[in-house]
């Protein structure tokens, strides 16, 4: 009786074990035979990446990104998940400057009191609550509401709503931590390289005529800046100028030429 019971357990277990051993053998043999020589550099780069496999860089997983990095097709700055220390290590491996480009936040609106109001807002609240009420008090759908949500969240007191009614970043104090970027309901805050001399302080991509009706300092999409730029650093995209800071020489001609003064010079 006992023998039957034991064999009733042992035989299935043995069969299962045999099948498992067979597969294990096949896998071992195949992994020896089919082993692909992996690039040591890629492996090392991969070990310093965040390993989130989020795909935000546009490559299939972190391994794909590591490969693209080693081939020089991708920039380290394409990855937002890897912490700074990891990027510095990767920079050492690849022999490029570790993404080191310091960034600073800027507000992409200079409307404030130049921008018309949809309604009078009185009482308690910040930008996030005002946004729920018909998208804020400003007539411009992407205009700074000016109720200071960014000021509230900034740990370094680096951003404040000025007299003109729109938020302004203090470059000295800004550490580019991104809290204001995440909390702005209008998504108006953006990072630019710390070395950049100019930036566009408007996010309205409507046609010039429509912008003009709402705001006297909104970008008209007139393309004057891109024409006056001698180094070709300015291209127009969706009625807004886009700066290529690697080409910008900091001549400030665009700042002078802009009819509505929405291209701002960064003051040191």
């Amino acid at each position: 009786m006992l023998a039957i019971q034991i064999s009733g357990i042992l035989i299935p277990a043995a069969i299962l074990l045999a099948v498992a051993a067979l597969f294990a053998l096949v896998i071992v043999v195949l992994s020896r035979k089919l082993s692909v020589e992996e690039n040591e550099r890629e492996k090392e780069v991969l070990s310093h990446l965040a390993g989130a496999n989020c795909g935000a860089c546009g490559y299939p997983g972190c391994s794909g990104f590591a490969k693209a990095l080693c081939e020089g097709k991708a920039q380290l700055s394409d990855c937002s998940a890897t912490p700074k220390e990891g990027k510095q290590e990767i920079g050492k491996i690849l022999g490029v400057a570790a993404d080191g480009e310091d960034t600073v936040a800027v507000v992409r609106c200079n409307g404030g009191s130049h921008c018309q109001s949809k309604y009078e807002y009185q009482g308690y609240g910040d930008c996030r609550t005002a946004e729920l009420l018909a998208g804020g008090r400003k007539a411009c759908p992407v205009g700074c509401i000016g109720l200071g949500t960014c000021t509230d969240v900034c740990p370094n007191y680096a951003i404040d709503v000025g007299e003109e009614g729109f938020a302004v970043v203090d470059r000295e104090k800004c550490t580019s931590c991104g809290l204001c970027i995440r909390n702005c309901p209008k998504k108006l805050i953006d990072r630019i390289p710390r070395s950049a001399r100019v930036y566009i302080a408007c996010s309205n991509d409507c046609r010039g005529k429509d912008v003009k009706e709402l705001c006297s300092s909104g970008c008209l999409g007139c393309t004057l800046c891109s024409k006056v730029c001698e180094s070709g650093a300015i291209t127009m995209k969706n009625n807004l100028p886009v700066f290529d800071y690697s080409k910008c020489t900091g001549c400030l001609k665009c700042v002078e030429k802009c009819p509505v003064h929405c291209i701002k010079e960064v003051k040191e």
Partner: peptide, 23 residues
């Protein structure tokens, strides 16, 4: 086991497909 084997075979014989399938 099969997925392991398939992964190794694809990695060896079709790196492009391996890249596309990723994780």
């Amino acid at each position: 086991s099969l997925v392991q084997i398939v992964e190794m075979v694809i990695k060896r014989f079709s790196p492009t497909l391996y890249q596309a399938l990723g994780v």
